[in-house]
Structures are given as C-alpha cells and as structure tokens.
C-alpha cells in the first residue's frame, strides 16, 4: 500500500526553485532515503510533507491525506525530527517527552508507558532527569529523535538524523533506526552515502530540487554500471548535471 505520494510538488523561494516537480511514491513500512548534497532540496521536501511549508504548486498525500487540504489529519499521523535538534532546553528529558505526549492527548498511563518504552529503546534512563539543554549534542539529537517517535507515528520523518554525530553515536543511532524498520514508514534525508546504503529499502537521489533516480542500492548501481554505491551516486549526480 502507498503511504506517501507527491504529484508535481514544487517549492519556489523568490528566484530559486528549491524543489522542482517532485514525484515520489513511498510504500507502507518502507524506509526511503532522500540522498543529495547540501542544497539539493531535501529539507524543503520534508518541510512540505510535514505541513510546515506550503508548496508553491502540486500536492502530496501522506497516509492518504492531502498536505494542502487536510494538514490537521496529516499532523496526527506523523513524527518529525527536524534537521536541527529540537528540544526544550530548560525542561528535563522526561518533561520533553511528556510535552509531546500531552500535545497528542495521551493519558497519564499511556505517557508513562511510552516514556518507559522510548527510554529503553534509546538508552535514555541515565539522562531522563537532566535538563535537555545541558546535554551533549549527540544526546540532544537522541532525545530529539525519541520525541519524534513517542507519539507512535505511522510515518516518521528524519531530516539528517546523524548530522554532527561521531562514528560511535552514528552507528548506535543506525541500530535504533533498524529496529523500527518494517513497523512504520520512515523517510530519512542524508548527504552520507554510506548511511543511505546501510539503512534504506530504496533511495531517491536529489540534485537542485529534482529527483534524478530512484531505486534500491542494487538497482542504482546497475543503472550506473558499477558495484560501488559511492561511484554510482557520483556518476548519477554528474550525469544529471549534463
């Protein structure tokens, strides 16, 4: 079943076209990565799909609901981890998680149960009582992603989830993301090729707002005539430039 479909989605800022006639089809339970260098239009795409920004033209359906006509319904189904870490600095980690539960109207019992589950999943027990703003960047990012998941979203958006993390923290986060695979639909953006390769069911390669190619790692490799994904990525992006 289809979870996300965009039809000729466009976003223009004054003189630049950040996203240009994007057509995406993402299935339920799929982990789909948008891969591209900085400025490719990944964040703008996520912002439109999560009803943060209105598209200039076109439309998208998230969980079957239109982002332009039914943003309220879309917002109830999604969890978002923005590119920049998004936590309330003066609240403890636990209070941050409670905040999101409260916004989604969870009962006290359910909130407690969700916090226990998420802190186990993200190993947050030791920082639960500490102020989020006082944690290291890596920990804040973990909390930020846990906040996206605590509302039990049907669709999860992760914008550059491992940006600024060290190697160990990155691999730990990859493990967490792998445990989610198949259960919910995940749209992840990254400019790390190895990240897209390690996690994705399918990858969409973006450049200058356009989708150049979509497929599994094998399909993209075959398309570029190589067995190394980095080489495939470079050649697809360069060819697209011609």
């Amino acid at each position: 079943m289809q979870e996300i479909k965009t039809t000729e989605l466009v976003k223009r800022y004054k003189d630049i076209t950040a996203v240009d006639k994007l057509n995406l089809d993402i299935g339920q339970g799929e982990l789909f990565s948008l891969l591209g260098v900085n400025g490719a239009g990944k964040t703008t795409t996520i912002k439109m799909l999560t009803c943060l920004t209105k598209p200039t033209a076109g439309d998208a359906f998230v969980g079957g609901k239109s982002i332009t006509k039914e943003p309220k319904l879309v917002k109830e189904m999604i969890g978002v981890s923005p590119q920049e870490t998004a936590v309330a600095p003066n609240l403890s980690v636990k209070e941050n998680l409670e905040l999101i539960c409260g916004i989604h109207g969870f009962s006290k019992e359910k909130t407690k149960e969700r916090i226990e589950k998420l802190s186990a999943q993200f190993s947050l027990d030791e920082v639960l009582k500490r102020k989020a703003g006082k944690l290291s960047g890596g920990w804040q990012r973990r909390v930020s992603i846990a906040m996206a998941l605590i509302s039990e979203p049907q669709i999860l958006f992760l914008d550059e989830p491992t940006l600024g993390l060290d190697v160990i923290a990155r691999h730990e986060l990859w493990d967490v993301i792998r445990t989610l695979k198949g259960k919910i639909t995940i749209i992840l953006t990254t400019h790390y090729m190895e990240e897209a390769e390690a996690l994705s069911d399918r990858i969409g390669i973006m450049r200058s707002g356009s989708l150049l190619a979509v497929g599994t790692v094998e399909e993209l490799n075959r398309k570029a005539g190589t067995d190394d994904f980095e080489t495939a990525f470079v050649s697809i992006v360069k060819e697209g430039a011609l």
Binding site: S81, A86, I103
Partner: peptide, 13 residues
C-alpha cells in the same frame, strides 16, 4: 530561533 517551534508546528497544536 530554535528548531523546537518548527517541531511543534508539525504537531496537532
């Protein structure tokens, strides 16, 4: 200025 409000704008608030 922080991304927190951006996150909250994607919730049902």
């Amino acid at each position: 200025e922080s991304a927190l409000l951006q996150r909250l704008y994607t919730t049902p608030l």
